[in-house]
Computed example of a mutant assay.
Amino acid sequence: MNKIKNIFQKGPILPSFIAESIAKHSTKTGIGAHQIFLGQIRADETDNKKVKAIEYTAYEDVALTQMTTIREEIFAKYNLTCMHIHHSLGIVNAGEICLFVFTSSKHRNEATLACNEVVERIKNELPIWGREIFEDESHQWKINQ
Protein backbone atom coordinates (compact mmCIF):
# COMPACT_ATOMS: atom_id res chain seq x y z
CA MET A 1 0.00 0.00 0.00
CA ASN A 2 1.20 3.50 -0.81
CA LYS A 3 2.02 6.03 1.87
CA ILE A 4 -0.96 8.12 2.95
CA LYS A 5 -0.68 11.59 1.43
CA ASN A 6 -2.19 14.54 3.23
CA ILE A 7 -4.60 16.25 0.84
CA PHE A 8 -5.70 18.85 3.39
CA GLN A 9 -4.48 22.39 3.83
CA LYS A 10 -5.69 25.21 6.04
CA GLY A 11 -7.60 27.94 4.22
CA PRO A 12 -7.96 28.56 0.49
CA ILE A 13 -5.76 27.12 -2.22
CA LEU A 14 -3.91 30.07 -3.64
CA PRO A 15 -3.58 30.76 -7.40
CA SER A 16 0.20 31.01 -6.97
CA PHE A 17 0.28 27.45 -5.58
CA ILE A 18 -1.75 26.20 -8.56
CA ALA A 19 0.55 28.00 -11.01
CA GLU A 20 3.66 26.57 -9.31
CA SER A 21 2.16 23.06 -9.46
CA ILE A 22 1.61 23.41 -13.21
CA ALA A 23 5.07 24.89 -13.79
CA LYS A 24 6.79 21.99 -11.98
CA HIS A 25 5.47 19.62 -14.64
CA SER A 26 7.22 21.31 -17.58
CA THR A 27 10.25 19.05 -17.13
CA LYS A 28 8.09 15.90 -17.34
CA THR A 29 8.19 15.62 -21.12
CA GLY A 30 6.41 12.25 -21.29
CA ILE A 31 3.20 13.98 -20.28
CA GLY A 32 0.91 14.99 -23.13
CA ALA A 33 -2.11 16.17 -21.16
CA HIS A 34 -3.12 17.69 -17.86
CA GLN A 35 -6.64 17.96 -16.53
CA ILE A 36 -7.36 20.38 -13.73
CA PHE A 37 -10.46 20.84 -11.63
CA LEU A 38 -10.78 23.88 -9.40
CA GLY A 39 -13.64 24.03 -6.93
CA GLN A 40 -14.51 27.64 -6.09
CA ILE A 41 -16.81 28.92 -3.34
CA ARG A 42 -19.99 30.37 -4.81
CA ALA A 43 -21.85 33.26 -3.21
CA ASP A 44 -25.11 31.29 -3.30
CA GLU A 45 -28.29 32.85 -2.00
CA THR A 46 -30.62 30.90 0.32
CA ASP A 47 -33.70 32.43 1.95
CA ASN A 48 -32.52 35.90 0.86
CA LYS A 49 -29.14 35.37 2.57
CA LYS A 50 -25.88 35.37 0.61
CA VAL A 51 -23.05 32.92 1.36
CA LYS A 52 -19.83 34.77 2.22
CA ALA A 53 -17.71 31.70 3.06
CA ILE A 54 -17.71 27.97 3.73
CA GLU A 55 -15.99 26.43 6.74
CA TYR A 56 -14.72 22.93 5.94
CA THR A 57 -14.20 20.20 8.49
CA ALA A 58 -13.34 16.55 7.99
CA TYR A 59 -12.86 13.30 9.79
CA GLU A 60 -9.26 13.53 8.60
CA ASP A 61 -7.88 10.08 9.42
CA VAL A 62 -10.77 8.31 7.71
CA ALA A 63 -10.78 10.73 4.76
CA LEU A 64 -7.05 10.27 4.16
CA THR A 65 -7.31 6.48 4.35
CA GLN A 66 -10.25 6.52 1.92
CA MET A 67 -8.41 8.93 -0.37
CA THR A 68 -5.44 6.56 -0.46
CA THR A 69 -7.75 3.77 -1.63
CA ILE A 70 -9.37 6.02 -4.24
CA ARG A 71 -5.94 7.11 -5.44
CA GLU A 72 -4.76 3.50 -5.84
CA GLU A 73 -7.96 2.55 -7.69
CA ILE A 74 -7.66 5.53 -10.06
CA PHE A 75 -4.02 4.71 -10.86
CA ALA A 76 -5.01 1.07 -11.52
CA LYS A 77 -7.89 2.12 -13.80
CA TYR A 78 -6.24 4.93 -15.80
CA ASN A 79 -2.77 5.23 -17.29
CA LEU A 80 -1.74 8.33 -15.33
CA THR A 81 1.68 9.85 -14.92
CA CYS A 82 0.72 11.68 -11.73
CA MET A 83 -2.18 12.96 -9.66
CA HIS A 84 -2.30 15.77 -7.10
CA ILE A 85 -5.21 16.55 -4.79
CA HIS A 86 -5.57 19.47 -2.39
CA HIS A 87 -8.67 20.22 -0.29
CA SER A 88 -9.18 23.13 2.05
CA LEU A 89 -10.04 22.91 5.72
CA GLY A 90 -11.23 25.89 7.72
CA ILE A 91 -12.77 29.02 6.26
CA VAL A 92 -12.68 29.69 2.52
CA ASN A 93 -14.33 32.89 1.27
CA ALA A 94 -16.60 33.23 -1.75
CA GLY A 95 -14.48 33.42 -4.89
CA GLU A 96 -11.59 31.43 -3.39
CA ILE A 97 -10.50 27.91 -4.39
CA CYS A 98 -11.29 25.04 -2.00
CA LEU A 99 -10.46 21.99 -4.16
CA PHE A 100 -7.62 21.46 -6.64
CA VAL A 101 -7.40 18.16 -8.52
CA PHE A 102 -4.61 17.83 -11.10
CA THR A 103 -4.16 14.68 -13.20
CA SER A 104 -1.55 14.08 -15.90
CA SER A 105 -1.10 11.39 -18.53
CA LYS A 106 0.31 10.72 -21.99
CA HIS A 107 -3.10 11.34 -23.57
CA ARG A 108 -5.95 13.72 -22.70
CA ASN A 109 -8.74 11.16 -22.35
CA GLU A 110 -7.09 9.33 -19.46
CA ALA A 111 -6.33 12.58 -17.60
CA THR A 112 -9.86 13.90 -18.16
CA LEU A 113 -11.69 10.75 -17.11
CA ALA A 114 -9.48 10.27 -14.06
CA CYS A 115 -9.87 13.86 -12.91
CA ASN A 116 -13.66 13.74 -13.21
CA GLU A 117 -13.86 10.46 -11.31
CA VAL A 118 -11.60 11.72 -8.52
CA VAL A 119 -13.75 14.83 -8.02
CA GLU A 120 -16.97 12.81 -7.89
CA ARG A 121 -15.51 10.29 -5.47
CA ILE A 122 -14.17 13.01 -3.17
CA LYS A 123 -17.61 14.63 -3.03
CA ASN A 124 -19.46 11.32 -2.57
CA GLU A 125 -17.14 9.18 -0.46
CA LEU A 126 -14.98 11.32 1.81
CA PRO A 127 -16.17 12.51 5.24
CA ILE A 128 -15.73 16.22 4.50
CA TRP A 129 -18.40 18.73 5.50
CA GLY A 130 -18.97 22.35 4.65
CA ARG A 131 -20.80 24.85 6.82
CA GLU A 132 -22.07 27.82 4.81
CA ILE A 133 -21.50 31.13 6.56
CA PHE A 134 -23.84 33.90 5.46
CA GLU A 135 -23.20 37.63 5.35
CA ASP A 136 -25.33 38.05 8.51
CA GLU A 137 -23.00 35.52 10.27
CA SER A 138 -25.73 32.86 10.49
CA HIS A 139 -24.77 29.43 9.14
CA GLN A 140 -26.05 26.07 7.92
CA TRP A 141 -24.53 22.80 6.77
CA LYS A 142 -24.04 22.64 3.01
CA ILE A 143 -25.57 19.89 0.91
CA ASN A 144 -23.18 18.66 -1.83
CA GLN A 145 -24.44 19.09 -5.38
Results as ranks from 00 to 15, higher is better:
I91S: 12
N93I: 01
H86L: 11
S104V: 04
I70F: 03
V62C: 04
H84W: 11
F75C: 09
V101H: 00
V101C: 02
T81C: 07
N93L: 06
L80V: 12
Y78I: 04
N79Y: 09
A63S: 15
V101W: 00
A63H: 04
F102N: 14
F100E: 00
N79C: 06
T65H: 08
E96C: 03
Y59M: 11
I74N: 01
C98D: 04
S104D: 06
I70G: 11
L89A: 03
Y59D: 12
I85D: 07
H84T: 15
R71K: 12
T103M: 07
L64V: 03
T69L: 12
K77D: 08
L99A: 03
N109Q: 11
E96S: 05
V62P: 01
Y78L: 05
Y59T: 10
S104H: 02
V92F: 00
E72Q: 15
I70E: 07
M83D: 09
F75S: 04
A63R: 02
L99S: 00
K106G: 10
L64T: 07
Y78R: 08
L64G: 08
T68A: 12
T81A: 12
E72C: 02
E60M: 09
T81W: 07
G90E: 04
L99I: 15
C82N: 15
I91T: 14
K106E: 15
L80P: 14
H107V: 09
T103E: 01
G95W: 01
L89Y: 08
L64Y: 02
I74Q: 06
E60W: 00
C82A: 13
Y78W: 09
S105P: 03
G95N: 04
G90K: 02
T57K: 13
E60Q: 15
R108F: 03
E96M: 03
N93Q: 13
L89W: 06
H87A: 07
Y59Q: 11
S88E: 07
T69V: 14
H84C: 11
S105F: 04
N79P: 11
V92P: 08
Y78A: 07
T68P: 00
A63W: 10
A58N: 13
Y59G: 09
D61L: 08
E96L: 00
E60R: 13
C98W: 01
H107K: 10
L99T: 11
Y78V: 05
A58H: 06
N79E: 15
H86V: 14
H86F: 03
L89R: 08
L89M: 10
T81Y: 12
I97H: 01
K77H: 06
K77E: 14
L99G: 05
T103Y: 08
Y59N: 10
A94K: 13
F100C: 01
H84E: 15
G95I: 03
T65I: 00
A94W: 09
